[in-house]
Nucleic acid binder design. Sequence first.
DNA 1: CACACGTGGCC
DNA 2: TGGCCAAGTGT
Length: 344
Amino acid sequence: MSVDAVPENLLAWYDAHHRRLPWRAAPGEAPTDPYRVWLSEIMLQQTTVAAVKPYFDRFTTRWPTVTDLARADEGEVMAAWAGLGYYARARNLIACARAVADDHGGRFPDSEAGLRALPGIGDYSAAAIAAIAFGRRAVVVDANVERVASRLFAFDEPLPKARPALRALVDRITPDARAGDFAQAMMDLGSAICTIRAPQCLLCPLRDGCAARIAGNPEDYPVKAAKKAKPQRLGTAFWIEDGARVWLVRRPDKGMLGGMRALPSGPWTDEDPGLADAPVDAPWREAGSVDHVFTHFALRLRVVTAVQALSANDGEWWPIDEIEQAGLPTLFARAAARAIASRV
DNA sequence: CACACGTGGCC
DNA sequence: TGGCCAAGTGT
């Protein structure tokens, strides 16, 4: 199979085997509302389809259009995003919705360059939205496409440094027509057939032209640069309650879990901070600790509790029996669960 | 440009 | 079970 035959074979496979997803139009159907395409692409950044589905349903039910989202209360959007991770996406989501509403008359730009200028939309998302929502030819390269293409061409230069060279190869196989279906077909193929481990080459529509399969080592692709070791950090979270309510703060926009509601907590470092960052003097009780692994460090967060009056400006009392609605990111949801379990 | 930035699932 | 990885973006 030559390179020229890739789009035809892949699209025929997609017509027969495409996944049905809430944000996707089937081949031949009218394209999905650009708002839904955009929302799904932002949620899917570094995030699995299974994790995104319930969030996508809740967001589109609560905010059916980009204008609705643009008018939404920022804190409510952040709380609705809680648990999905990479919270800068949620801050950029709001900024993008407001830019579309205020600067573009409530309609998404229909060109890759126009989309690329919006907050939270990078090279990948601009290409994907242009292709999927607007039928534009665009070279869409995500981790699935990198894996499929690097195997197809037996491309063995280490990523991410060699990403531009790999993108040039993807450009060669991207068709002018059905660019959106082609991009989604590459992703479905990467998800179902051309998997990280144990790829199902016998079922692959591109097997006859795949250099890595012919060489017998598809699992050796893509080649990636070595990763750095994760440091271990230590911190303390403070559960302060008045009996029925707990004291919550909002974390600064910059930095870890930025903009999210949280338990008070000092900086996380390689030294155990103990009670040094306590927001108030209190007879602290140990409630155990939570181990949590982030992208670039591991954290052991000690949880201490106290029943204490507290008056401060930068925080709020939250009913403990409604803690699930506070929109805590997973780390602090786990810390809160630890504190609640330790109550007498 | 290398690094910061979450979470859960997989083996 | 600890390491790897995911429909990346911003700085």
